Computed example of a mutant assay.
Amino acid sequence: MKYKKYLSILVISVLIVSCAKNPFTGKSTMALVPNSQILPMAFQQYDQFLSENNVVTGTAQANMVKNVGQKISSAAERWLTANGYAGYLKDYRWEYNLVQDETVNAWCMPGGKIVFYTGIMPIAQDEAGVAAIMGHEVAHALANHGQQRMSASQIQQVAAVGLAVGTAGSENAAIYNQAFGVGSNVLGMLPFSRSHESEADKIGLTLMAIAGYDPLIGARLWERMSQQGGDAPQEFLSTHPANQTRIDNIVKWAPDARAVARKFGVTSFKN
Rank of each mutant, 00 (worst) to 15 (best):
Q37T: 14
V104F: 01
C19N: 07
Q147V: 04
Q48N: 10
P34R: 10
N177E: 14
E77Y: 09
K21Y: 13
Y96P: 00
Y88D: 06
L39R: 03
V165T: 06
A242Q: 12
H196K: 09
G204N: 11
Q178A: 14
V56E: 12
A141M: 06
E52T: 02
E95H: 11
H136R: 09
I210C: 11
P122T: 05
P215K: 03
I12A: 08
L10V: 04
I175P: 00
V68T: 04
Y3K: 07
A259Q: 12
K90A: 15
A173G: 06
G58Y: 07
P122F: 08
Y3E: 13
K71G: 01
V266E: 02
T267P: 02
A128S: 15
K202Q: 09
F236H: 09
G230C: 05
G181T: 13
M208N: 07
S193Y: 12
L89G: 06
F192N: 06
V56I: 15
Q227K: 15
I16V: 15
N35G: 13
A60H: 08
A42R: 00
R262F: 06
R246T: 05
G135P: 03
A124Q: 01
M134V: 04
I175A: 15
E137A: 07
F236L: 09
V161M: 13
R78W: 03
A42P: 04
M121Q: 05
W94L: 11
Y46F: 15
I217C: 06
Q227W: 03
S28T: 10
R93N: 10
A76H: 08
A141G: 12
W253R: 02
F236P: 00
V104I: 12
Q154G: 15
G162N: 07
E199A: 12
I210S: 13
T103Q: 11
A261L: 07
G87S: 10
M150T: 02
I175W: 15
E197V: 01
D91M: 08
E127A: 03
Q45M: 14
L10G: 04
K2Y: 11
A141R: 00
A257D: 00
F180Y: 15
L207F: 11
A132K: 00
R258I: 10
V138W: 04
